[in-house]
Design a protein around this nucleic acid. Structure first.
Lengths: 215, 215
DNA sequence: CCTACCGATCGGTAGG
DNA sequence: CCTACCGATCGGTAGG
């Protein structure tokens, strides 16, 4: 495992029994990431309230008090998980400035399902749990949902101006409909994965919005 | 409270300090219903796992052990809540045999939102919580969702044979889409009631499925 | 319908 | 990174 030392390209260090600061740091970072990944998965499977810190810690092979060394409270762990998830989503939607990508936008969101089912599971279940106003992630998802709808609405408005939208399609309503369809379909998929093809359903919805000029 | 005795139409009973069996029975039934209503509301607000029996009992003015006299386990209380909710929904969809009602079907489902928001809140939140396979209501919602989709699919197939559906509308996909849209919209509505008009969104979706021959 | 209690579990802390 | 512990809370039971 520590074979990276075997090259000995650097000046030899003191061979004490204590690990070097660099090693300890790297190990800490790895633990940090391991906890995050495990938390992401378990929060997705059992929800935030349904997951105990002891469960996450056990899967990482540490005591739960050790986990609290990396994340001082359970809520801080949740926020870290949401921030990581959000950062990835943000970078995805960042390069959607060009209107050419609108058709591709929903398709990309749709196919994310296959890319990282764990992320989808987390997002959907946490959002559902966060409908409780007392839930620590309530404000996060409230703001996030509004932002998503607003972004897609803006894209659809531009598309409408260029004549890409079918008659009678209201940008805001269509945007709300897209995310409602996505979240509802994912809920159904979580209940019974074999019962529904989420990407296919979303692509079908998307096609019903645009005029038939995709080559 | 016990004024039903004042009519004295029956033979006079012994006037002991103990209440009559009839009175006790009526009181028990009332308690039973009171607990059910309170549980429905609190499960809707905080979910099943997020609601303690002590909270429900406290709102009914009894000890939590007294609640367990009426419902021996927490899960049995949940099942009673779901059964009552399901019975009402079943009687609603019972008289949908006639195909004339299809257009009205989704509209009825849509406007239920305004009729009993508590019921909607309960259904949506419990369904979301039940995506956890370990949740006691998992099988219930899995079966229930499939049944709803199947029922609407059948109605849409009949409508399609009669030429009521737009071209390219697949009954099954449209049915899945309807319930996905409903559940996702209700999720959004729970997060922020002011952000979305669920009935309006569902009626709009419904119109996109049928040909324009509604008077 | 209550008091009193059980064992289990929770998030978090102390102290090393 | 651990053991040991805290106070709080949980669903459920005993016994009246």
């Amino acid at each position: 495992m520590a074979n990276t030392q075997s090259t000995k390209q650097e000046a030899p260090r003191r061979q004490t029994s204590a690990r070097t600061p660099a090693t300890r740091y790297a190990k800490g970072v790895a633990r940090h990431g391991e906890i995050l990944e495990t938390a992401k998965r378990l929060f997705g499977e059992h929800g935030f309230r349904g997951t105990a810190l002891r469960d996450i810690a056990a899967e990482c092979g540490i005591a739960h008090s050790t986990l609290l060394h990396y994340f001082p409270t359970k809520q801080s762990l949740l926020m870290a998980v949401l921030a990581e998830r959000d950062e990835r989503a943000r970078s995805e939607s960042e390069h959607l400035e060009r209107l050419d990508d609108i058709l591709d936008f929903t398709r990309r969101i749709a196919t994310t399902q296959g890319t990282d089912p764990g992320m989808i599971e987390l997002t959907t279940k946490m959002m559902a749990e966060a409908t409780d106003p007392a839930h620590p992630a309530h404000d996060f998802y409230k703001a996030r949902s509004a932002q998503l709808v607003d972004n897609l609405t803006r894209l659809l408005e531009h598309a409408k101006q260029r004549g890409f939208l079918r008659e009678g399609v209201d940008p805001r309503r269509a945007s709300q409909g897209f995310f409602a369809l996505r979240d509802g379909a994912q809920l159904q998929w979580l209940l019974d994965p074999a019962s529904i093809d989420v990407p296919e359903l979303l692509v079908w919805y998307q096609r019903s919005l645009f005029t038939e000029d995709d080559s």
